[in-house]
Simulated assay, not measured.
Amino acid sequence: MDATAARGYALITGASSGIGAEFARQYAALGVPLILTARRVHRLQSLAAELASQVDVQVIAEDLEDPAAPARLQAEIQRRRLHVQILVNNAGYGVAGRYLTRDWAVHARFVQLMVTAPSELTWRLLPDLIQSGSGQIINVASFAALVPGADGQTLYAPAKAWLLAMSQSLSLEYADRGVHVCALCPGFTWSEFHDVTGTRAQMSRLPKWVWLSAEQVVRAGIEGVRRGQVLVIPGWRYRGLYQVLRHLPQAWLLRLMARSSRRVRSQG
């Protein structure tokens, strides 16, 4: 991490566990001060206590499912006179089940958290990142953004594809202003994600080679955005798989996704 970036704060959403907490730990090890936000304030405070001996850690509890949360978060950052130089849009979850098995209110909260909140937060903080001359944005997307959507996760792949396309556009628009933007697209990663979606039992049956550690994913993201990569796929197996899949006809890919979805449902 260069000295300029080390002077600004890294704002990490969804920092209470999993990939978000690991971003906090790795940035702290690099000497980058932190702003941690998530719903579960007690977890944020515990993580802040863990890292306080390394860097300054600011905790701002917010639920980004609330449409007013991004504006409140920006206002509190400004009130504390903090300067954000790195933005990690990480907060997220999955909604298991086919589209009509869930009320629209569930889907609306999901879209707010996964699409609207990171888009608005980026819009609100981008002027500071530009002013710094060396801003960085990591949008935690998914390998799901690179393949057809799955049966039973109707809005997940579209939301992650949104983050990927937004990262590409922002990179084109602001790279010449010193802002590096990347979409981090990991495959299956050990975290609480599958506990939240209720799919832990099915996922545990997958072969060990498909799983990535949070440490591996975060390291790839930090190094990738520093190098100016717009698309970062952690793990050589997933990078190889992407190179194969991107050359297959869409009809084949859809059949593969259908077969994979049936297998997962049958194991549930």
Rank of each mutant, 00 (worst) to 15 (best):
Thr4Pro: 00
Ala5Ser: 12
Ala10Asp: 10
Ala10Ser: 12
Ala10Phe: 09
Thr13Ser: 15
Gly14Cys: 08
Ser17Ala: 15
Gly18Trp: 03
Ile19Gly: 02
Ala21Ser: 11
Glu22Ala: 12
Phe23Trp: 08
Ala24Pro: 07
Gln26Pro: 11
Gln26Trp: 09
Gln26Gly: 09
Tyr27Met: 13
Pro33Ile: 07
Pro33Glu: 12
Leu34Gln: 05
Leu34Ala: 07
Leu36Asp: 09
Ala38Ile: 13
Arg39Thr: 09
Arg40Asp: 09
Arg40Lys: 15
Val41Cys: 07
Val41Glu: 15
His42Asn: 15
Arg43Val: 03
Arg43Cys: 06
Gln45Ala: 11
Gln45Glu: 15
Ser46Thr: 15
Leu47Val: 03
Ala48Lys: 09
Gln54Tyr: 12
Gln58Asn: 13
Gln58Pro: 00
Ala61Arg: 01
Glu62Val: 10
Ala68Phe: 01
Leu73His: 04
Leu73Val: 05
Leu73Cys: 05
Ile77Val: 05
Gln78Ile: 02
Arg80Thr: 00
Arg81Thr: 01
His83Leu: 07
Ile86Ser: 02
Leu87Ser: 01
Leu87Trp: 06
Asn90Lys: 08
Gly94Leu: 07
Val95Arg: 04
Gly97Tyr: 05
Arg98Asn: 09
Leu100Ala: 12
Arg102Trp: 07
His107Trp: 14
His107Ala: 07
Arg109Lys: 15
Gln112Trp: 10
Met114Lys: 04
Met114Leu: 13
Ala117Asn: 10
Ala117Thr: 12
Ala117Cys: 14
Ser119Cys: 14
Glu120His: 13
Leu121Cys: 06
Leu125His: 02
Pro127His: 09
Asp128Leu: 01
Asp128Tyr: 00
Leu129Gln: 01
Ile137Val: 08
Ile137Asp: 01
Ile138Pro: 02
Ala141Gly: 09
Ser142Gln: 00
Ala144Thr: 05
Ala144Gly: 12
Ala145Arg: 02
Ala150Trp: 09
Gly152His: 02
Gln153Ala: 13
Tyr156Lys: 03
Ala157Glu: 08
Pro158Gly: 13
Pro158Glu: 10
Ala159Glu: 03
Trp162Ser: 10
Leu163Gln: 15
Leu164Ile: 08
Leu164Phe: 10
Ala165Gly: 12
Ala165Val: 15
Ser167Phe: 04
Ser167Glu: 07
Ser167Asp: 08
Leu172Phe: 12
Leu172His: 14
Tyr174Leu: 10
Asp176His: 11
Gly178Cys: 08
Val179Arg: 02
Val179Ile: 05
Val181Phe: 06
Cys185Tyr: 02
Pro186Asn: 05
Thr189Cys: 03
Thr189Asp: 03
Ser191Tyr: 06
Ser191Asn: 03
Ser204Leu: 14
Leu206Met: 15
Pro207Met: 13
Trp209Arg: 14
Val210Trp: 07
Trp211Asn: 03
Ala214Asp: 04
Glu215Arg: 04
Gln216Asn: 02
Val217Asn: 06
Ala220Trp: 02
Gly221Gln: 02
Gly224Leu: 04
Gly224Glu: 00
Val225Ala: 01
Arg226Asp: 08
Val230Pro: 05
Val232Ser: 03
Val232Tyr: 03
Pro234Asp: 05
Pro234His: 08
Tyr238Gly: 04
Tyr242Ala: 14
Val244Lys: 00
Arg246Pro: 04
Pro249Ala: 12
Gln250Met: 15
Ala251Leu: 10
Leu253Gly: 15
Leu253Cys: 12
Leu253Trp: 11
Leu254Gly: 08
Arg255Phe: 07
Arg255Tyr: 08
Leu256Ile: 13
Ala258Lys: 14
Ala258Ile: 06
Arg259Tyr: 09
Arg265Lys: 14
Arg265Asn: 11
Arg265Trp: 15
